[in-house]
């Protein structure tokens, strides 16, 4: 059994959180509020030292880089969101963020998530001895087309279009099934981690 006080605290808090599985109770609530409070407090302290001090105070105080005062002041305008009369000032930093974000993200995002994937779906590789590659490419090609047809609502889903849309539903269901299977695996994994922590790190019952 561990003699480390922090392991004990973590173990007792873990049990407090799991007590919710039996029913909601005060011990669970204390642990929950503690988690939220500590997470936010930790994030604020990290941000304070790594952003406010390191990126704002140090450059001005130690490196005499006074130019960064301009973006700092623009950033501070964001706090005018709290003023009813002067809230329009907050639109200035927001416009910078949206302008920069859109300018950078749209072309790169389009290339990454649309162009590359369309290219890869259209370009069905010749199997070159491995027929499974060709079959795989065809399954994906048919799946993309059928799923897109399912989400095309400008024509009624009847006749051939209806049949293709139905095939699209099957593809979507298979995708949901795969996601659900992975989700189950993820949730069990998190419990496995806590079980290992309790049985190995805390109680020392397993190696």
């Amino acid at each position: 059994m561990s003699t480390n006080i922090w392991i004990w605290i973590a173990a007792l808090l873990t049990l407090a959180i799991y007590s919710f599985l039996y029913k909601d109770n005060i011990v669970y609530k204390i642990a929950e509020y503690l988690l939220v409070g500590v997470s936010i407090g930790y994030s604020i302290s990290i941000t304070w030292y790594n952003v406010v001090i390191a990126k704002m105070v140090v450059p001005i105080r130690d490196q005499h880089n006074y130019l960064i005062i301009i973006p700092i002041l623009i950033g501070f305008l964001m706090f005018f969101r709290f003023s009813r009369k002067q809230s329009w000032l907050s639109k200035i930093p927001i416009s910078f963020v949206i302008g920069w974000g859109a300018g950078v993200a749209i072309p790169l995002g389009f290339q990454t998530t649309i162009v590359e994937h369309i290219k890869n779906t259209i370009a069905i590789p010749w199997f070159g001895g491995n027929i499974l590659l060709l079959v795989n490419a065809l399954i994906i090609f048919v799946g993309v087309v059928a799923t897109l047809v399912y989400f095309y609502f400008s024509v009624p889903h009847k006749g051939t279009i209806g049949k293709i849309a139905n095939l699209g539903i099957w593809y979507i269901m298979i995708a949901f099934g795969a996601s659900f299977g992975y989700t189950v695996m993820a949730r069990i994994s998190l419990f496995i981690d806590r079980a290992q922590f309790l049985l190995h790190d805390w109680l020392g019952l397993i190696h």
Binding site: V104, G109, T112, E116, Y182, T183, A186, S189
Partner: peptide
């Protein structure tokens, strides 16, 4: 998006099972 598409950096991913698909 920013590492591979912009700079051609090789990217490896380690992700939770929920996000794997």
């Amino acid at each position: 998006t920013y590492g591979y598409t912009k700079y051609g950096e090789k990217i490896g991913v380690g992700t939770t099972a929920v996000s794997a698909t």
